[in-house]
Nucleic acid binder design. Sequence first.
DNA 1: ACTCATTGTTCGTTTTTCCGATCACTGTGT
DNA 2: ACACAGTGATCGGAAAAACGAACAATGAGT
Lengths: 305, 305
Amino acid sequence: MSRNSFGDIRVFVEVARRGGFRAAAEHLQQAPATVSEAIQRFEDQLGVRLFERSTRSVALTPIGEQFYARSLPAVSDIEGALSALDEEKDEVSGTLRLSAPYSAGPFFLDDLLARFAIAYPSVAIEVIYDDRKVDLLTSGIDAAIRSQTLMAPDTHAVPVGPELKMAIVAARGYLDTRGTPQHPHDVLDHDTICYAFGRGDRLAPWGFTRANGAFVVQPKPRLIANDMRSLLHYAAQGLGLAYVYAEIAAPYIAKNDLVEVLGSHLAPMPRYSLNYQSKRHMTRRLRAFLDLVKNVSYSSGTNVS
Amino acid sequence: MSRNSFGDIRVFVEVARRGGFRAAAEHLQQAPATVSEAIQRFEDQLGVRLFERSTRSVALTPIGEQFYARSLPAVSDIEGALSALDEEKDEVSGTLRLSAPYSAGPFFLDDLLARFAIAYPSVAIEVIYDDRKVDLLTSGIDAAIRSQTLMAPDTHAVPVGPELKMAIVAARGYLDTRGTPQHPHDVLDHDTICYAFGRGDRLAPWGFTRANGAFVVQPKPRLIANDMRSLLHYAAQGLGLAYVYAEIAAPYIAKNDLVEVLGSHLAPMPRYSLNYQSKRHMTRRLRAFLDLVKNVSYSSGTNVS
DNA sequence: ACTCATTGTTCGTTTTTCCGATCACTGTGT
DNA sequence: ACACAGTGATCGGAAAAACGAACAATGAGT
C-alpha cells in the first residue's frame, strides 16, 4: 500500500460525493491542484481509473462506482468517530478535586493521576493530601480516597489501587541463629528491615490477620530503605526479617536465598476506596476518572520507591 | 482537519491493534520513526492523548479506547474495499472482441469503448467493423452490435447507443421560395444539406416512418459537412433543407430562424442492439462491458462529428 | 458564432513528511 | 545486580506532497 491510500480514499470519496474536484477541494480545505494530483497518484498506484473526466466535468467509472459504494459508509463512520472524539475532548475539562491520604501518592495515586492527566489534557487536577474525614456534599471535593468506605448518604465507593500480597522473609542462616518466629508478635524480638516512605520519616506497618480481624505490628527497625529491592538484599545478607511485596520476593525464595516465615498470618495490603457522590448529573471529568479507575490494571510489581 | 487525518487514523488503529509502534511500522511497511512522529502529530492536532507510553510499552488511553472501538470497523471496511478493488481489477482482463457496423464507431461506440478502456486498463479491445451477420457461437466474437436484435439460440440483446429524435429544418425564406415539402419523397425535389461521416465518404440517410413501417430516403446533397452545427448554419442562411438532431435545432426553431417540416413523418434514430450469448460462465470483461452499457448515460446533444 | 465563467491540469517553488542513525529508558534473564 | 535486547523518541537530510499561478478546454448564455 502506498504512502497515503487512506487519505487518498477520503479525497476520492469527496470528489465522487460532490461531483467535481474544485467542490471537493473547497470542502477538504485543499488546493484544487492538490486534489487533482492526489487522485492521479492514487489511480496510478491502483492501476485503475476511478474517474473519467474532461476539461469541464467528472464522472465515476463503473469500477469507481463500486469502490465508492463500498468506501462511503466507512469514510462516513470515520468522520463520525472524529466528531465524537472532538465532542468527548471538549466536554472532559475543568478541575478534578481529590482528597487522598499521604501514603496513596507515592504508592499508586501519582501514577494514576499522571495517566489521567495524559489522557485528558484539558482537565486540571487538585489533590489535597489529608487523612481526615471529608464531607463530599459541602467540601467541593469530587472524590475522596481513603482506606475505608465512607458511610454517607448517596455516597458510593469503588476499590482503587493495587492489591498486593505481602511476605516476611529472612536468610536461612539468620533463622538458624535467631530462631524462626512462630507468631506475629515474635517479630518484635528480631532484627527487622522496614520500608520507609519518602525520606524515611514514615515507616510501613506490618499487617497481620487472625480469626477476629486484622491488626498491625510496628517493629523498631534495624535497617530501613525506600526501595524494596534493597530490603531484599539486606535480608539475603542475613541482616534480619524483611516485610516486602510477595511478588518481588518470589525469585529469592525460589532460589532458597530467602525463606518465608509467618506466611499464613499475613494480611494482603488492603485496597483503598474511592468515595464519590452518585449525583444525577455527574461531571464528565469525574465520570472519566471513574472509568479510568475501574478499567486500569496496575503493572505487576508496582514500584513504590 | 489536518493534512492527513485519515492516514493517521489508519496508523493509530494499527498501533492499537498490534500493541506497539514497531510492530505496527513493520505491518505498514514504514519506519518506526514515521509511525512515532505521525501519532505525535495526530495527537497534537486533535488535542487529545490516544496512547500512554513509556520507553518500553504502549497502551490506549480511555479516550483512545473509545476512538479505537469506533474506528476499527471502518478501517477494516476500507481495507476490504481496497482488496476487492484489487481483485476486480485483476480479474477484468484479457481481450474483448466486438463486431459492429461502420456507422456505430463515430456515432457513439468509439466514445463508449474509450470509457471502457479507461475504466479497465487491463482489458484489450478488438472491434471488427462489419455489417454482415455474425455467429456468436463459433466466431470468437464476444458481442455484436447491430441495428437489429439477432435471433439465435441463447442470444440476448440490450439496447445500446443514444436515442435521438431527428428534425428537418429550413429557413422561412427558403420555404417561401421553394415551397414546403408535404411528403417524405418531396425532399428529393429540394436542395438538401446532409451530414457526412468522417471525411465525407458516407452520408447519413434520412429516416422516415409511416403506417406500415420505416424507410429511408437518401437525397443528393447540395452541401455536406461532418458537423451538425455547420448544417444548421447553412440552413439558417436559406441554403436548403437540413436533416439534423432535433435537440440542437430547437434553439433555432424557438427563435424562428428555422422552421421544422415533415415533423410527424420522421422516425427517431433507432438504438442499436448489443447481442451476446448468455453463457453460464460469462467472462468478467464481457460482464463489465454489459454493466457499462446498461448504466451509461449518453451526454445530451451527442456530437457525432 | 462568440464571449465568458468555470472546470481539471501542469509546473516550479515551498512546505511537510519520511527515514536512517542514534539515543535514553526499561523489562527480562541470568 | 547486571547485561542486553527491544522499546519509543529525536534530528538532520532526502524525498514527497501541497500550493499558487497560469493554462487549455468546455458548456452556458446571448
